[in-house]
């Protein structure tokens, strides 16, 4: 493990650098010119719907899958020619908790630590430390089969962190978890980033990427179609907006007439649903503005909410842009 810390100092710059990566399954291109650059020490979100190629990208970068063409470097090592070095410097947390269910949490971590080259004593010490870090110290000896989904996930992440990797890959770490489990995993990811580990996180949830990641790449059909900070991406089109539900007996156009967006954009109306949507690029201040105007006009809406764009909306907006 000492060797790993030395490796870390040996290179700087990007922790992940992929260029023009292709991966085909028969005639289907799972990766079709995939490009990615992730700065060292950051959390990067890889966002996209099912089938966009997120897991294939993780497989290619972690040397689990051979790539057909293109180049990819992880922690300074080439995934094609220096697979062993890559594996020494990364941690992988796949889509399903890949820990031994019959064994206890501590036993699992000791096994993985020893497979990383640590001696038994060193592996025990490291296991204790990680169980503490991820809030599993009380369950250290229990069989993993008795763990909740969130606990399993955290143990899985601890296993990925066993060798202090330079880059940790988290493939949809919260899919299928209950809200409590999700919060716990988020806390774990934050704790990892605080230690300076670069994290590549794939997810289907914009909310998750928004909360954890400093930068995001959006994938579709095996390629990255947009990149930037969460704020930039959401601003691309489907930005924040205020939705006003028109009171019974009133018309959407009447309500809309009292509400002009701060940037002069006209609100959109949906007469059938009784809904008026006002763009709110500034978020909460715009909401307050809408409340003031409605109040001044003596309108009490049935419902009023500041809505953030969902991944679906951002994604649809981006793909629309692309086809134009």
């Amino acid at each position: 493990m000492e060797r790993m810390r030395q490796d870390r100092a040996a290179h700087g710059g990007a922790a992940i650098r992929a260029h023009g990566v292709h991966k085909h399954y028969g005639s289907i291109a799972a990766l079709d010119g995939f490009d990615l650059e992730v700065a060292t020490g950051t959390i990067h979100g890889l966002l996209g719907p099912n089938g966009a190629g997120k897991s294939t990208a993780v497989g290619a970068l972690t040397t689990l899958l051979d790539i057909d063409s293109g180049t990819a470097e992880v922690a300074g090592a080439d995934v094609r020619t220096q697979g062993a070095q890559v594996r020494r410097r990364i941690g992988l947390v796949g889509q399903q908790p890949a820990v031994d269910e019959i064994l206890g949490a501590h036993e699992n971590l000791v096994m993985f630590g020893m497979l990383h080259g640590a001696g038994r004593r060193e592996a025990h010490r490291r296991a204790d430390e990680l169980l503490e870090l991820f809030g599993l110290a009380d369950a250290a000896q229990r069989a993993v089969s008795t763990f909740s989904g969130g606990m399993r996930r955290r143990l899985d992440i601890a296993a990925g962190m066993i060798a202090e990797p330079q880059v940790l890959f988290l493939d949809e770490p919260t899919t299928g978890l209950d809200p409590r489990g999700r919060l716990d995993v988020w806390a774990a990811v934050t704790a990892i980033a605080a230690r300076g580990t670069t994290v590549l996180l794939t997810t289907q949830y914009l909310e998750e990427a928004d909360l954890l990641a400093g930068t995001i790449s959006i994938m579709r059909s095996g390629r990255v179609i947009a990149e930037g900070s969460p704020r930039e991406l959401k601003g691309r089109r489907g930005g924040d907006r205020v939705e006003v539900t028109v009171p019974v007996g009133d018309s959407a156009s009447h309500v809309a007439a009292t509400l002009t967006a701060p940037d002069g954009q006209a609100p959109t109306t949906d007469e059938e649903a009784g809904l008026v949507t006002v763009p709110a690029p500034h978020g909460a201040p715009d909401l307050i503005d809408v409340v003031r105007r409605l109040d001044a006009a003596g309108i009490t809406p049935d419902d009023l909410a500041l809505r953030r764009p969902t991944l679906d909306e951002v994604f649809l907006a981006l793909t629309e842009e692309e086809t134009r």
Partner: peptide, 17 residues
């Protein structure tokens, strides 16, 4: 099925291990 094989494969161990 449980992904344990993939985890082993992501570790710096020799293939026959």
């Amino acid at each position: 099925k449980k992904g344990v094989t993939d985890r082993f494969r992501s570790l710096p161990i020799s293939s026959p291990a």
